[in-house]
């Protein structure tokens, strides 16, 4: 193996990489916040919400969980324009990530809600709270607390999955790496660098979510 690693291009392409990182962070942030909100809504429907909405939500969840993210992305970006919905690369990428995380987090959060002791609902009712108030004020936060580690992992998985959005020319970290390798022919180095960026971001994101879990949720005594 006679290969000389060459990272001398890094200085020239620094801005491209930074821009890519910015896009990946933005996609992750929007995807995570909106995706989890969508997941909460769907989880509420599937557990406590109106009966007639449950089958469509179940279908949505199963359809997303059993198809690759890339195909969902392609369907949104390439397929939807033919029915009149034209989205930019970033809009399509954001939408695909929200829809994807929405389905996964729905199932995770649902597990959290279903593990709620019956007494909690009764306690809400005893305080004359309406069902929706009971859900919002009594059920939701402990349910999220229960599944926070699983939800955090899912967010990291979705972030890593976002590498695919480079395929519809959304300019994320992977796109930057593709761009660099097409200009410098230093494919291995370019992908090594982008892989390292993803690894560090994944570690940082996991730490951040753990920390957030500690801020958001009240401390509970050891059970």
């Amino acid at each position: 193996m006679h290969y000389i690693f060459d990272f001398s291009w890094i200085w020239d392409y620094g801005p491209v990489i930074l821009k890519g990182l910015f896009v990946t962070v933005e996609l992750t942030l929007v995807g995570a916040v909106a995706g989890v909100l969508l997941g909460i809504l769907c989880a509420w429907i599937r557990t406590l919400g109106p009966e007639m909405l449950r089958p469509p939500v179940a279908a949505y969840v199963e359809l997303i969980r059993n198809t690759p993210f890339m195909i969902q992305l392609f369907f949104i970006f390439f397929g939807l324009p033919s029915v009149g919905v034209q989205l930019s690369e970033l809009q399509a990428a954001n939408l695909a990530m929200i829809i994807n995380l929405g389905a996964y987090s729905c199932e995770i959060i649902r597990a959290g809600i279903e593990a709620t002791p019956k007494g909690q609902f009764e306690a809400g009712a005893a305080l004359a709270l309406r069902p929706l108030q009971t859900f919002r004020l009594v059920i939701l936060v402990p349910a999220l607390q229960r599944i926070w580690p699983a939800l955090s992992s899912q967010i990291v998985i979705v972030m890593l999955g976002s590498a695919v959005v480079s395929q519809i020319a959304a300019e994320d970290v992977t796109f930057a790496a593709n761009f660099i390798q097409s200009r410098t022919f230093r494919a291995f180095e370019a992908y090594m660098l982008s892989t390292a960026i993803y690894l560090l971001f994944a570690i940082a994101l996991r730490q951040l979510l753990n920390q957030m879990g500690r801020w958001i949720f009240p401390k509970v005594a050891a059970r």
């Binding site: 590498a163 480079s166 992977t174 291995f188 090594m192 993803y198 994944a202």
Partner: peptide, 17 residues
């Protein structure tokens, strides 16, 4: 901790080395 896509690229270009 890294995207599967990156692993594919690295395998594709790395084995070539």
């Amino acid at each position: 901790g890294t995207p599967l896509l990156m692993q594919l690229f690295l395998a594709f270009f790395g084995l070539g080395l």
